[in-house]
Design a protein around this nucleic acid. Structure first.
Length: 882
RNA sequence: GGGAGCAUAGCUCAGUUGGUUCAGAGCGUCUGCCUUACAAGCAGAGGGUCGGGGGUUCGACUCCCUCUGCUCCCACCA
């Protein structure tokens, strides 16, 4: 078969993926083997593949494929997240394009549109993952709003409600005026934002609502909220303001009278020391308001506009109002000054709208007990975070956790199972029927029509925190009497979770909580936290910057294997990835290298009569040992989740050791046959190498593995066992390294002296060079004859070099530049002598000899002996040069 | 404001309890090669006061202090 000199991934990748699917190689069912389980971090159902997904899922796939080849029953469960706020806003936008407003349709109609949209456009990302080679068990694909998963969410709510962990109340929440919903603390991103600091003058009231000439000055960043002021507050220790005690002041523009109060919360040296207290629109002010029993006046509506309670600027957007009120205050003589000011402002993670702290009725889940257990799971090491540094962050969060606001004013999601009675009381039950039963206990007259279900849905994370449980057995969460089904009992807890540190709290911590609560066990043992994918300038990849390549374009251009390798090459856990297309190019080039190595081997014809050349025997013996060494190192890297190190080790094993040294040594002369022993060994090595590479580059390895030897119809490399590291002889590897050094030295001489590689050279060895590897030197350095001259004389017509402590030389009559050689030798001598001095200084230091471990001292003595022998050799060479 | 982390070759990063000739790897760079698997390649070479300063130690890239620069997380000073 004639093979192209270039590997063409497009031809092979789709073919093999389809074949894998057809044969259900990714599918897992519980059996007697040890399970290895990963649940996918479910991407948004509306999502499309970006580089972050590529990183995450490539890592996942490497782990899963490795486990599968280790003989474990590997199961990678895929699926998507309904992502309530993100999806709902997409559907709203889509409807708007069709001229439909969400306000004009019913909840049922909206949900019908949303589901329609989901069926049509949702889950694109899952098909994109196939392009990448992800070996997910697609038969187990789940969606967080699948009916049974939704049921699990509802049961969970009822469970925690009955346990007393869920409560409803008016609290200050983070209101997103664009998404029109409350969001949790974790969904608020604080960013330093430049704004203005307005100094406003409030006149003291004469007691009848009329201004006196006395005034105080407050400083605020939000002058548009003054109409909602409930008091002015100063620190009780602030003597400057003792004269204000018992006074009332007038809110500018509306002349409303409010009291002056004292609270130690106020910092005397910040601003003017006078704080306007606006309980409805600031978290701290709300707290002060509670302490001082202040009225709460909410002057901002859902959309962030001033409402009629503001009395002025009604209907204006909060930022527009701020702008206008500045002028009004100035005109009224209340504006003292305006300063530039930078302060942290909260933004909605999803919509990027400025969060409005706002009082509203929401549902909360108590976190203290859950957080305590979840902290313990990590502190005890039951759940391992990789890298370890995230433990600190995790602890800090768990120790300072707030109750979780779980209600969202949206329609897309699981509707809260609370049912209101006509008198305003409510009951919580999994279904309307059960709710009715409950309600009738208080009032037997109640009918189904009297009950009204809560309008809100639950936070998306309130469903995804069940993911590692509910994908296997949705009956489990919230039902303590339920026994885990066969799948859950077998696959739980999962082994590894690969995800980004940005959702450590959103998701990882909460899964640990749910696991502890419902399974009495952790959900996963290892959490591998990836970095963020950035461009090569270190900028976060984003649509607006346009610096994010489309993974599918990359796959089309370089192949999925190339993309996977390019991603993995620069990955270490917890560190950001500076991604550059050149890395993918490197991945593609590696594919090509493997391809061409195969091409070479595939052209060989065995010759039964051929005898194994010495060089080939040397190579086979060496590579067998080298392979075992490399396998051990690879396993060690895997065990520490150092996947890019594992990959780089294999990369070099293949490219340098196998191609550059081994194949060059065993390669038969053009047209000649190859002996069977060498051929079989080579095929065996190639087979092992392909298996080692397979988790990283599944497609090309499957392709070549099938070409390497005849395979059965259902045989796949992905279900072969990973070679196991055997014992190896360090001496053989070390001796071969000497051969490599000798070859490199001779090649360097050829380059310097302009001697063609085709011209055989002589080799003189003055000392003990390992005989076993000499054939390798002869072959690769193109040595015509080897001499072992007596003594250490050097004629001056040869070019010497050292391999460790063995002096060797290439005879080069007429090519030796005596002066230059002398210069080189003298420089070398100087270095060795200085080195010897340092070593001897150490050895003559009693504290060192007595204090350092014997091993270290012995090593120093060896250094000393080696240096002495080298110095002798160099001196002899110099003497011979004259 | 609180906390965590990072700084090693032109770039991206390893360097695991302080001690093997430990100053490394990959990429890039330079030089020579279209050598019958591969120019997406082969062969060879150069390149770093381990951010600055101080300390501990027989010995420091490694431990401690400090300064500088960067990153991330958390956070209610209006």
């Amino acid at each position: 078969m004639e093979l192209s000199a270039k590997y063409n991934p497009a031809e092979t990748e789709d073919k093999w993926y389809a074949w894998w699917l057809e044969n259900k190689f990714f599918h897992s069912e519980p059996d007697g083997r040890e399970p290895y389980t990963i649940v996918i971090p479910p991407p948004n159902v509306t999502g499309i593949l970006h580089m972050g997904h590529v990183l995450n899922n490539t890592l996942n796939d490497v782990l899963v494929r490795k486990a599968r080849m280790d003989g474990k029953n590997a199961c990678w469960v895929p699926g998507t997240d309904h992502a309530s706020i993100a999806t709902e806003s997409k559907v709203v936008a889509k409807l708007k394009e069709q001229g439909i407003s969400k306000e004009d349709i019913t909840r049922e109609e909206f949900l019908r549109h949303a589901w329609e949209w989901k069926e049509k456009h949702g889950g694109i990302i899952l098909s994109q993952l196939r392009k990448l080679g992800a070996s997910c068990d697609w038969d187990r694909t789940r969606f967080t709003m699948d009916p049974d998963l939704s049921k699990a969410v509802i049961n969970t709510f009822v469970y925690f409600y009955n346990k007393g962990y869920i409560y409803r109340g008016v609290r200050m929440v983070n209101w997103d005026p664009v998404g029109l919903t409350a969001v949790s603390d974790e969904e608020v991103i604080h960013r330093d934002t430049t704004s203005k600091f307005y100094h406003l003058r409030y006149f003291i009231s004469d007691g009848n609502g009329n201004p006196t000439s006395d005034f105080l000055t407050i400083a605020t960043t939000r002058p548009e909220t003054i109409m909602a002021d409930a008091a002015i507050c100063v620190n009780p220790a602030d003597e400057r303001y003792h004269w204000l005690r018992g006074k009332k002041v007038l809110i500018p523009l509306i002349n409303k009278e409010i009291p002056v109060i004292e609270d130690s919360y106020v910092e005397m040296d910040f601003g003017t020391g006078c704080l306007k207290v606006t309980p409805a629109h600031d978290v701290n002010d709300y707290e002060i308001g509670l302490r001082h029993n202040l009225p709460v006046l909410d002057i901002i509506d859902d959309h962030g506009r001033l409402n009629e309670k503001a009395r002025i600027l009604v209907g204006e957007d909060r930022f527009e109002a701020r702008h206008k009120i500045e002028k009004m205050l100035a005109d009224a003589g209340n504006l003292v000054k305006v300063e530039d000011y930078t302060s942290p402002v909260g933004y909605s993670e999803r919509t990027n709208a400025v969060i409005e702290p706002r009082l509203s009725m929401q549902w909360f889940l108590k976190m203290d007990a859950l957080a305590k257990d979840a902290l313990e799971s990590v502190e005890s090491g039951k759940v391992r975070l990789i890298p370890d540094k995230y433990r600190n962050t995790y602890r800090h969060w768990m120790e300072n956790v707030h109750d979780w606001c779980i209600s969202r004013q949206l329609w897309w999601g699981q509707q809260i199972p609370a049912y209101y009675l006509p008198d305003g009381k409510y009951v919580v039950a999994p279904t309307a029927e059960e709710a009715l039963e409950l309600a009738r206990k208080t009032d037997p007259q109640i009918t189904a029509a009297d009950l009204k279900q809560d309008e809100d849905v639950l936070d998306t994370w309130f469903s995804s925190w069940l993911w590692p449980i509910s994908v296997f057995d949705p009956e489990m969460p919230g039902q303590p009497d339920h026994q885990p089904n066969r799948d859950l009992a077998y696959y739980y807890p999962t082994n590894d979770l690969v995800t980004g540190p940005d959702i450590l709290f959103f998701w990882v911590a909460r899964m640990i909580m749910a696991g502890n609560e419902f399974m009495k066990d952790i959900p996963f043992r290892n959490v591998y936290l990836t970095g963020i994918v950035r461009d090569k300038l270190g900028r976060k990849m984003s649509k607006t910057l346009g610096n994010s390549p489309d993974p599918l374009d990359l796959i089309a251009k370089y192949g999925a294997d190339g993309v996977r390798l390019g991603m993995l090459l620069c990955t270490s856990a917890g560190n950001d990835i500076l991604f550059d297309e050149s890395q993918v190019e490197q991945g593609r080039n590696f594919c090509n290298k493997i391809w061409n190595a195969f091409r070479l081997v595939s052209l060989w014809k065995t010759d039964e009569k051929a005898v194994q050349p010495e060089a080939a025997a040397t190579a086979v013996r060496w590579f067998r040992n080298r392979l075992d060494e490399a396998l051990g190192i690879m396993e060690d890297h895997y065990s520490k989740f150092r996947l890019s190190d594992a990959l780089m080790g294999i990369y070099k094993l293949f490219w340098d050791d196998f191609c550059a040294w081994y194949l060059e040594l065993v390669k038969p002369a053009y047209g000649a046959g190859i002996d069977k022993a060498t051929y079989d060994a080579t095929i065996g090595f190639f087979d092992s190498l392909l298996k080692m590479i397979h988790p990283f580059m599944p497609f090309i390895t499957e392709e070549l593995w099938h070409n390497l030897a005849p395979r059965g119809e259902k045989e796949t490399i992905m279900l072969q066992r990973m070679p196991v590291a055997g014992k190896y002889d360090k001496g053989i590897i070390s001796d071969f390294t000497m051969a490599e050094e000798a070859v490199v030295a001779v090649r360097a001489i050829r380059q310097q002296k302009n001697i063609s590689p085709k011209e055989p050279l002589g080799l003189r060895i003055y000392g003990e060079f390992p005989k076993d590897v000499l054939p390798a030197v002869i072959r690769l350095a193109n040595i015509g004859s080897v001499e072992y001259p007596e003594g250490t004389e050097v004629s001056g017509a040869e070019i010497p070099f050292m391999v460790r402590t063995v002096k060797m030389a290439v005879p080069a009559e007429g090519l030796v530049d005596t002066a230059k050689e002398k210069e080189k030798l003298e420089a070398d001598l100087k270095y060795q002598e200085e080195f010897l001095t340092i070593v001897r200084r150490k050895l003559s230091n009693e504290k060192f000899v007595n204090g350092a471990p014997e091993k270290v001292v012995a090593a120093e003595r060896k250094k000393e002996a080696d240096a002495i022998s080298k110095i002798e050799s160099i001196k002899a060479s110099l003497a011979a040069l004259g």
